[in-house]
Simulated assay, not measured.
Amino acid sequence: MQSAVKGKLIKLDGLTLKEAVGLSGNGGTKPQPFNFGDFEELTTFRDCQRNPKNTNYTKFLAGGMKKNSRLISFIIAWMLKPRLDNHAQMSRDDTLLMHVIKKKIKIDWVSVVNDCMWKARRKEDGPIPYALLLSKIFEKAGVYLKGEKKIILHASNKIEKSSLHHMGMLKQEDKWVFKGDIPPTPEPTTDEDGIPSHDKDQPPQVKVEPDREQEAEPKPFSLFE
């Protein structure tokens, strides 16, 4: 794939991607969902679920995944194979990349980038993916960028706490967990008279009321007060 940008011919090939961001095509295998080793879409998706029995398999939704799988699906949908919408539902390509990443299979990432760019090319109203990647390629190619509009990164553009909260995670002590995985705080038990019970090894804690007669009357600092 190649294109002229402000008079500079840019090829989106392995050499360019290698120089710009160190992206390699040495894996030699172009990931194709319908012909890729032992890949089975349903098996890969099922292995990622926290509760496989309660999962709806008619739609490959990412919300019920284990923590690491959920983070990988987020990175695939937003960074590796970015798209306009429907980030919560995995496509067949997304599931294949999940399989590749989890199994640590070396693939031709150059072809993945090119395929994603080619699909974006067909949509006139769609944003161009890999904005940061292309910015580095433009700089390497010597494209004159003075006066171009710049987008400043802010909190909503970064994968930080807000993104994890959006996935339904909470920070508990020193780790992130899903809200549904936090055990509920046990409520104090009561006996038949409604009085809170206590541990047999510990005496009941009795709240002592202060002696009102011994409390000193507050003295004003001035006549006004």
Rank of each mutant, 00 (worst) to 15 (best):
G14D: 11
T58V: 09
S111V: 01
K104N: 13
I137W: 03
L23W: 07
K136N: 08
L133C: 07
F178T: 03
Q172V: 15
P127W: 04
D125K: 12
A141S: 15
Q89S: 12
S73L: 05
K175I: 08
D38E: 14
S91A: 04
A88S: 12
E148R: 04
K200E: 15
K59C: 12
S69L: 05
A62I: 12
E187L: 15
M79W: 09
D199I: 06
F36W: 01
M167C: 08
L96K: 02
P184W: 02
I101N: 02
I128T: 14
T44S: 07
G180E: 15
R70P: 05
H165S: 08
H99R: 02
L9A: 10
M167R: 01
S73Y: 08
G22D: 07
L84Y: 10
R70F: 08
W78T: 15
D174K: 14
I128A: 06
K179R: 13
E160T: 10
G194R: 06
L134R: 07
L164I: 03
P220I: 02
F60W: 09
V113Q: 01
E139C: 02
P210M: 11
L71K: 15
S163F: 02
F74R: 10
D193F: 14
K81P: 01
K146W: 03
E209I: 11
L71R: 13
I159L: 15
H165G: 00
K103Y: 01
T43Y: 08
L61M: 13
F74D: 07
M79Q: 13
T95G: 00
R122Y: 05
K11L: 11
G25L: 04
